[in-house]
Every structure is written in C-alpha cells, then in structure tokens.
Simulated assay, not measured.
Amino acid sequence: MEFDRMEALLEKYFEGETSIDEENELKEYFSSSNVAPDFEQYRPLFRYFTEAREQKFTNNVSLISKKPKALWLSIAASVVVLIGVGAYTYFNSMETEKESKELGTYDDPEEAFEATQKALAMLSTNVNVGVGGVQYLQVYEVTKDKVFVE
C-alpha cells in the first residue's frame, strides 16, 4: 500500500503537481530507514534538500568600492573615442577637399558648356524612359474603367 502511494507521489512530484504537504511526506519517507529498494535511487535527492535547508552562509563579504577603477576606465574610453572621432574628421575633411577641387570646376568655358550638355542629354533620356512607363499606366486605367463600369 505504501509502495503504491509513494510511487504515485513520486510521479506527481516529477510532473510538478505535488502540494507542499505531499512534498513534506516524500521528504519524511526518504529520510526514514525503511525505504523500498526500488526507491533507493531517489534517496540522495531528498537527502540533499534536507541538508541544503540546514546550510547557513557563513562567509563575510567585504564591500570594496570599485568606483576609482571604473572612473579611470570611463575616462580612458572617452579619450579613445575622442581621438577616433578627431582622426576620422581630419582624414575625411582632407578627402572632401580633394574631391571638391576635382568636381565641377572647368577653366575653359567651352569645355564646361559641353559637359553641361552631356549631363542634360543623359537626364533627358532617362526622363523620357520614365514617361513611357507612365503612358502604360494610363492605358491600363482606361481599360480598367471600360471593364469595371460603375
């Protein structure tokens, strides 16, 4: 009878469905000397719970402030970030100066005029391609209005 009861309680325990009273009953059973041989494997588990409850924390923890280290670490990190940002800005500004000198400056007015004409021709070609696509949309709208008459 007790074997069947303990087996059912163990099954409920491992499913996580036991109450506090049932868990206490299991702890008492496994701390006693008359445990069934089939349940001997569970004895160390419940013995651990009993021993763990009796353990007390006895170590003294010294509270050492680590703020000075954190302060110096944050200052060093800030300096590294500032150096990185300064170096990036310095080298980036040198590159933009070179690019600005090379782009869009012509000494000869005729050469500038030819470059402008090329740019406008390219723009005109691309805009005309886009207008052709819009015309297909207009044909679609007309056809749709014919099919779906309100």
Rank of each mutant, 00 (worst) to 15 (best):
M1Q: 14
E2L: 10
F3V: 08
R5M: 04
R5D: 05
R5V: 07
R5K: 15
M6S: 06
L9F: 14
L10C: 02
Y13Q: 08
F14W: 10
F14V: 01
F14Y: 14
S19D: 12
S19L: 13
D21R: 10
E23S: 06
N24T: 04
N24A: 10
Y29W: 07
Y29T: 09
S31Y: 05
S31C: 05
S32N: 06
S33I: 04
S33P: 00
N34A: 15
N34Y: 11
V35I: 11
A36K: 06
P37R: 09
P37L: 06
F39N: 04
F39E: 01
F39L: 04
E40P: 00
E40S: 03
E40I: 01
E40D: 03
P44I: 07
L45K: 08
F46V: 05
F49A: 01
F49H: 08
T50A: 02
A52W: 02
R53I: 06
Q55V: 03
K56V: 11
K56H: 02
T58Y: 01
T58L: 09
T58K: 11
N59Q: 02
V61C: 00
S62G: 00
I64F: 01
I64N: 03
S65E: 03
K67C: 00
K67F: 07
A70P: 01
W72R: 14
W72C: 07
L73F: 13
S74I: 03
A77V: 13
S78M: 15
V79M: 15
V79E: 10
L82Q: 09
G84Q: 03
V85H: 03
V85W: 09
V85Q: 09
V85S: 14
A87M: 07
A87C: 03
Y90C: 05
Y90M: 07
F91W: 01
N92M: 13
S93H: 07
S93R: 02
M94H: 01
K98G: 00
S100N: 13
E102W: 01
L103E: 05
G104W: 05
T105Q: 07
T105D: 01
D107N: 10
D107W: 00
E111I: 10
A112E: 13
A112D: 04
A112K: 08
F113S: 08
F113M: 10
F113E: 14
E114P: 01
E114K: 13
E114G: 01
A115V: 03
A115E: 05
A115P: 03
A115H: 11
T116L: 15
T116Y: 14
Q117R: 10
Q117A: 11
K118I: 04
A119T: 09
A119D: 14
L120V: 13
L120A: 08
A121H: 08
M122R: 09
S124W: 04
T125H: 06
T125M: 09
N126K: 14
N126P: 00
N126M: 08
N128G: 05
N128L: 12
G130H: 05
G132R: 05
G133A: 13
V134M: 15
Q135E: 15
Q135T: 14
Q135Y: 13
Y136P: 00
Y136R: 12
V139K: 15
Y140K: 06
E141K: 15
V142L: 08
T143Q: 11
T143K: 07
K144A: 06
D145K: 12
D145V: 02
F148I: 02
F148V: 11
E150H: 00
